[in-house]
Design a protein around this nucleic acid. Structure first.
Lengths: 272, 272
DNA sequence: ACGCATTTGTTCGTATGTATT
DNA sequence: TAATACATACGAACAAATGCG
């Protein structure tokens, strides 16, 4: 029992692994130390102890705080970095990931112009209203039936570079549902005024950071209303993308249904 | 210069990082040791020193062979494991990833039945012929114009579980192009006879292991011929999936175009 | 059934390199 | 230049899973 020697005031007779760094049921109790540290870090992120874009304490500092070695903290941070929840910068520190950065911008928007150009898409807000969550939406978002939700409908438009740069063509029609409680205060005005990624607004104004999403893709025929908005013929093939986004703790906080016009764009994916 | 003390016959006056474990230009020369070790491991995989499914030497043995610490080997293997090229099994050893395992089966086939059921799809070979690679195929596969290629066309069919289990419905129409030279000897008979994943056949018979793929997805209207094969109405929306697959040295070795009927299935994706 | 050797997994400690401020 | 922070590399010890005799 090596660590009792140089750590006199440590919780004495416990073996290193069982050593309950974590107070209670936050971690599965008998998990490796670095997993417990990882859980503590996620806890801190969830609690808002460190905001997106900010530095977290240094590895040595965290090691001292939780009475583990720097290597153990390092391994916990390593995993959170590969999961894109933290970003390491040599010489500067470790930062909480944010959707403000350019890199993160295209982590969730997988649509790319066929010619490789990627000029930022224009947004046009069509609707933003509070309502009772429809049954299926409530179920997917983990809400009770009839709880408040916010629905947002918007268009993303690309400048048709090949011809007239000023000419905008609709490419994406998005329908979003958000839980009403955490997103209290989300209005059309707020959305209109915002410059920058939507998920960055959610971080900054509603303290909700998206860390992961699951998507279901299928090809569908454009219904009349949606076809009109996308300026395509009714019945045209469209790519339907249904997304469920999660925040810290794997809580689903956004349901989104996108219809993509893939005539001049495609959805890119990498299989590893 | 700590290592000269206990490693008398090592290449003496070099700092640890520059220490050329790697003979020549295989690694960028001034990369971290563990990256050089990683390159050596990939080299061994590419050369077929260890076959898919087999164990590679233990960490201590590799450390001894390349005169580095076990921790350095460990870090190299860690990265290759997260890249799915190696699989660690506690107490047993580290294995070369293979497409034979059940886990790997759905790493490249992202189509899922809407009801969650995932019975293996039936295959029906439609065509397998050798030909000169069309210009675009040659370009994508890195072949010279007019070089030999193999084209394969096949259907994947699902048993329509809800109604009649015996009734098979076509779900995927795949067109594959493979470089002719490495795939010499690939015939319709060989394909018909094979039970198991296609990529496993490539490993076993042609020593080509797929490690990564890029896909471009779009919604298209079914052309007449393809519609007939998929038993859908011409013009029906289909999900088009264009895939470029890579083997060890990031060499593209398969171009594939799939048309998916997404009426009862969807393409699932996870954004991290 | 038991114990032993092997192999990866976890944890610690230390020293040094490299980037940033 | 110095201090700070992450990155790399080494060594050691023990835990946990596996397989064999």
């Amino acid at each position: 029992m090596l660590d009792n020697a140089d750590m006199p005031e440590a919780d004495s007779p416990l073996s290193p692994v069982v050593r309950a760094v974590v107070p209670a049921a936050v971690a599965p109790a008998f998990s490796p130390l670095y997993q417990q540290i990882k859980a503590l870090l996620v806890q801190g992120l969830q609690a808002g102890e460190w905001q997106p874009g900010q530095v977290i304490p240094s590895e040595v500092e965290l090691a001292a705080r939780w009475r583990v070695s720097q290597g153990t903290v390092r391994k916990a941070i390593d995993e959170l970095a590969t999961e894109n929840m933290l970003v390491r910068r040599q010489g500067k520190g470790t930062f909480v990931a944010t959707h403000a950065e350019q890199e993160t911008r295209y982590r969730f928007l997988r649509l790319t112009a066929d010619d490789g150009s990627a000029p930022p898409l224009q947004r046009r807000l069509l609707e933003c209203r509070r309502m009772r969550a429809p049954a299926e939406v409530a179920q997917r978002l983990g809400l009770k039936a009839g709880e408040a939700a916010v629905q947002v409908r918007r268009l993303l438009l690309a400048s048709d570079g090949a011809r007239d740069a000023a000419r905008l063509r609709p490419v994406v029609l998005d329908d979003l549902w958000l839980p009403g409680t955490p997103f209290k205060g989300l209005t059309a005005e707020r959305l209109e005024a915002w410059r920058g990624p939507l998920y960055r607004l959610f971080e900054a104004e509603f303290a909700i950071h998206m860390i992961r999403a699951e998507e279901k893709l299928r090809a569908v025929a454009a219904p009349a209303e949606e076809a009109a908005l996308l300026e395509v013929a009714p019945g045209s093939p469209l790519l339907s993308v249904e997304r469920l986004s999660y925040t810290y703790g794997d809580r689903p906080v956004e349901l989104r249904r996108g219809l993509y016009d893939t005539q001049a764009h495609h959805y890119r994916n990498v299989l590893n």
